[in-house]
Structure formats: C-alpha cells, structure tokens
Design a protein around this nucleic acid. Structure first.
Lengths: 330, 330
DNA sequence: CTGAAAGCGCTTACAG
DNA sequence: CTGAAAGCGCTTACAG
C-alpha cells in the first residue's frame, strides 16, 4: 500500500533497457513487430516492478476516459440496481461504468463541472432532477425518461405494461378497475396511465372518474388508497404504477379491512424481490430494466453525439402472477 | 453538445490577453494579487467561452483525482444506499464519490487496474468479494467488514444491535429466543450472533441449541425458518440478522399458520423502508449506516495511508417498535 | 502584478 | 525492429 512511489512507464523502460514508447506498445498489446526476446524482457520487468498504467495520463493523451458515467437519483430504489447491472454488462468490453448520485448535498454547478471534465466518455442519466444537458459537452442518453427537450433517450414501453396488467384483470372478470398513478410530472407515470386508459377503452370498459394520484412512494400509495376508500370503493381491482405505491395501497386496504384478492385485486407495474415476500404476494408486470441499461450503454457508445436517439425497449416484459390478483367478486 | 472543440485554458488566456498561468490562478480562486481589471477580464472571457476545466489534466498535474471510489457488491440491497448518502455528504467538500460495483461481469484483473490507475484518491470497499487490498497503491478503508488481514476498517457495533433486540424481547417477557443468522463467513453475521448470545447469557437465559442459519436473503430466511418449524418451534421470539431474512422468515411463519406476534415475535437488525409496509410491520434495530459512510470518508481522507484504522460506529442506534413484536405467549 | 518554463505519465505519428 | 520527440491541458515553483 503506497509503500514506494508509483512505478511509471519510464521505470519499466529503464529496467528493460528500451524506450518508453516500445514499452507502451508492448504492454497495450498493440500489434507491433518486436523481437520476442525484447517483448519478454519488457513483460517481465513490468510484472516484477508491479507496473500499473496511469489511467489519468492515458486519458489525457488519448482523449478517452475509458469509463461511462451513470447518474442515479436514489439508490434506495431497486429499479436502478437492475439498470446498473445491465449497463455494466454492456460496458464491460469498452471500459467501466461509474455511478454518481444526485442525492444528498448535490450541488448542480459542481456537478456540471465534475461530469463534464473529461472523466467519462459519455453519460447516462436515469431519472432525478431535470438537468440541462445542453450545458454539457459530453454525449449523453436519458434513461427511462422522454422529456420534450431531450433529444436522446431510451424508455420502456410503459403503456404496454399497463395494458398487460389490465388484460390480466379483465381475464379474471374485473370490469371496475382503477389506476393508482405516479407523479403527474413523471413521463413514465403519464405513459402508464395512458396505457391503462387505452386498454380499458379497447375492452369497451369505462375509464373510471376516480383518480388515485400517488407519487411512486409507499407513503403516497397508502394515502391515495385510503382517501379512495373513504370515498367508497367503486372498484374491484387496482393497477398500481409501481411496487412501492402498491405496497402502500396494500397497507391501506388492510387497515380498511378490505381483503386482497377476495374483495379487491392488486397488480403493480415493475417487479421487485419484495413483491414475493409481502402477504399476499404481489402480482406484477416485470419490466426489462436490465435490458434498458444495456441498450442505453450500447446507444451511447455507438451513436454520434449530434444524432438524436429515441428508443423504446419493449422486450422482455412478463406478467408474474402471484397471490394479490384473483377472480372478480360478484 | 460537443458542437465545438473543447475550450482550454489557452483559449481563455488568448482571449483575455494574459498568460495561461494567470488564468489558472484566477479561476481556481487562488489567493493571488491581481489587478481587479485583469481578474474581471479573465472571468468574463472564461464565462463567455464556456470554459470548463479539464479534470483529467488537472489530476495528472496535481496528482490528485478529486474523487473517492466506493465499491458496492449489490445495489439491490438498500443498506448500501444509506452508506452511499453518508459518504457523499462527507465527501462533498473534498470532491465527489463515484460508485462501482463488483456485480455482473466483474473482472478482478481489470478492476485492480481501473481502480488503481489514479482515478480516485482513495477507495471505500463495502462488502462484496474479498479483495487483496495489498495489491493496491491507493489508500483504502473497508466498510462494515473487519477482516483479519485488513488493517483499515470501519464497522458498526453489530453486537450492540443484537443486544438491543434481545433486551426488547426480554422486556416483553420472552425467554425462549432464537437467532436467525447470516452467512457464517460474514464477520457482521458473526458479531451479531455473538452479541445475541452474550445478551442472553447476561440475562441469565440459555443460549438455544437450535441454530437457524440464513444467508441474509429472503429465500434463505424462509428456508431456515421453515426447517426450524418442522423441527417443532421451541421458541416464542426470533431475532433476525437482517431485514430480508426476517421477511423470508415471516413468510415461512405465515405459511405454517404461526401468528405474529401472538405466537412468535420477530425483530430484525437493520432497518429498511419496507419494514413499515409488510404485515405485520416489522420491528427493527436501526443501524447508523449513513454515519458509517460519512465516517469512512472522513477517515479515508485524514488518515495517512500507512496507518491502521480500526473504528466502530456505534451511534445512533435506535429500536423502532412496530407490530411484529409483542408480549410473550403464556 | 504578471509571464515563461518545466513537467505530470502517457500515446502516437515520424524516422531510421 | 526500435528510438526520439512532440504534446494532451493543466499547475506550480521561479523570475522579474
């Protein structure tokens, strides 16, 4: 640990009695015609001295960071964990991906500088505060968010997820279905609601007038459901915009003595490990978050910085039937 | 977005008709005596040109990265989110903190190079595979893990957390209490078990022979609890080593028709938002994860790289009583 | 108060 | 097959 000064290319070159440029080429495995004997000597000395390339110097010279940035608003939300793993997998061949958050004590000005200072070759922005991407010189892709101004984004097929949820409920005989939405300023929430309403209309059902507005949080879901119940539950099934709000709704239903799924069926968009461990276990539509992260890196790496990106990742999306949905009560 | 070539210090210097060195000093706010008029001209040109310092060049020259690394094994575990927020808060004044994971497709060799290439001034390692830190030149601190070889770590007072859980149960009249442990090779799990057993002994109670060995996961907790129930439940209360295993145990108890807390009380070490939204809501001992992350950055930044660090973060630790614990059945 | 120069550790044409 | 040189964009003594 930091026992001696760092060993540099020059140290290896001196030990192997060659020029630094040759060491550089050999160590990077560049296709260079070099005498086998010399190559061995270089490799040997590098290993003996414990040489490790200075990524900073390399980056400065080559103008490539060898890393992508991924901005996360909130690490407590497991949704991001799956996006991260997809991004890492896709980036593995090209370099690493480093995560930063816009959470506690986030300073926008410092952030723009930090992120745009050449430390990353590109930036994935997943949720969080609306950033002015035009201030940045580094190429970016917005993940799971299609904002009007942002011309480069990858989103999920939110509408289709809602539709799958509705179809499942209709298949169980439900006709009075409400939507427990997310925050209206989140475009994902808007698309999920739109998909929900379209699915009802396509099935010839009325879109209920009652609107449950949550905010994607458990507390918000609980509150929205509680007030809907006070108004008198004119529904037999609920599609929740995400898992946390479904858990909150479940709590409110339980407190009101409403049985799930005997009285009311509940299904959520998105999956989460926890869905399996609540009671009753929560039926969900699992979204391709891993694929979303992977695709975002792919696009970031391959698309010229001045070209727009408008991509929808639709596959695979899977209905995971658990215990919270059942036949409509008569 | 990448419309023009990056603007450098030289560009600003030329526009302001001064030397780059002066621009550098003024822009960094270095206490330099400079004519006010010149200063204004420099600031103005920098802003007009949209100058943003190249962090890479700065790092190379100053041998400071201005960033700390934080290695996370698994972003789906919300425990890490709290460590992250603490670390970010503590690092804010000194620079940023970037997270990387040892998850999907993690390549150790590439990792050692990437992390040790000068991109970070120090490294926090929270859980995950056992890394050979002696291979690294960069200073590090192990977070929440006290391994024999590692001479630099910050941990929580796991034993005390277990003790608080046991004391709570004893206060409710329980005397037959079992421990649903974590993986035996995790030192946190060992300390939690040790604290559990010590607390029982101090209270004059027998340490039960039955050992429930989970693996910190919901599936593991469920399985361990199920097999304990098959053997005949000789206990009225359970201390779970973490929240996920408690949720699994809850599921197994439910399946076996055991009422919580009427038949068996359940309490978990660590807290999580989800604890509030399961039924019954889970009583927990909340650990100071945020403080752990903050303290780790502090120590990393202030301790010379060759000095050992052995620190325990004990405060604040809080019993959060919810619905899963109650009086012992008679 | 301001400038000129050296150099951080690499990579990359250019020579020979 | 190998070397010498330039230069990435900064910071930091050293001058004056």
């Amino acid at each position: 640990m930091a026992t001696s000064a760092r060993v540099t290319l020059a140290d290896v070159a001196k030990a192997a009695q060659v020029d630094v440029s040759l060491v550089s080429r050999v160590l990077r495995g560049e296709s260079v015609r070099v005498r086998e004997e010399t190559r061995q000597r270089i490799l040997e000395q590098a290993s003996m001295l414990g040489y490790r390339p200075n990524a900073i110097a390399r980056s400065l010279r080559s103008a490539r960071a060898g890393a992508y940035g991924l901005v996360i608003p909130d690490f407590t939300n497991p949704v991001y964990a799956h996006i991260i793993s997809g991004a890492e997998e896709a980036a593995a061949a090209r370099g690493s991906v480093v995560m930063t958050s816009t959470g506690s004590g986030w300073d926008p000005a410092a952030w723009y500088d930090a992120v745009d200072g050449g430390r990353v070759d590109g930036l994935l922005v997943a949720g969080g505060p609306t950033l002015d991407m035009s201030r940045l010189a580094v190429p970016y892709v917005l993940v799971n968010r299609a904002v009007p101004g942002g011309r480069r984004y990858v989103v999920l097929d939110d509408a289709r997820a809602s539709r799958m949820a509705v179809d499942h409920l209709i298949g169980l005989g439900h006709s009075r279905i409400v939507f427990l939405g997310g925050p209206d300023d989140a475009d994902t929430a808007q698309r999920r609601r739109a998909g929900f309403e379209a699915a009802l209309r396509d099935a010839g059902l009325d879109v209920p007038e009652v609107r449950l507005n949550g905010d994607y949080s458990a507390a918000g879901g609980r509150e929205a459901m509680a007030s809907a119940l006070r108004a008198g539950p004119a529904f037999t099934a609920v599609v929740a915009a995400n898992v946390p709000s479904a858990l909150g709704a479940m709590e409110a239903l339980r407190e009101a003595g409403v049985e799930i799924p005997a009285d009311v069926s509940l299904i959520a968009v998105h999956d989460a490990e926890i869905a399996e461990y609540v009671s009753p276990a929560l039926t969900t539509v699992k979204m391709p978050l891993h694929e979303l992260g992977a695709r975002a890196i792919d696009l970031l790496a391959r698309t010229p910085a001045d070209e727009p990106i408008e991509e929808v990742v639709a596959q695979p999306m899977e209905l995971t039937i658990r215990a919270s949905t059942g036949p409509a009560p008569r």
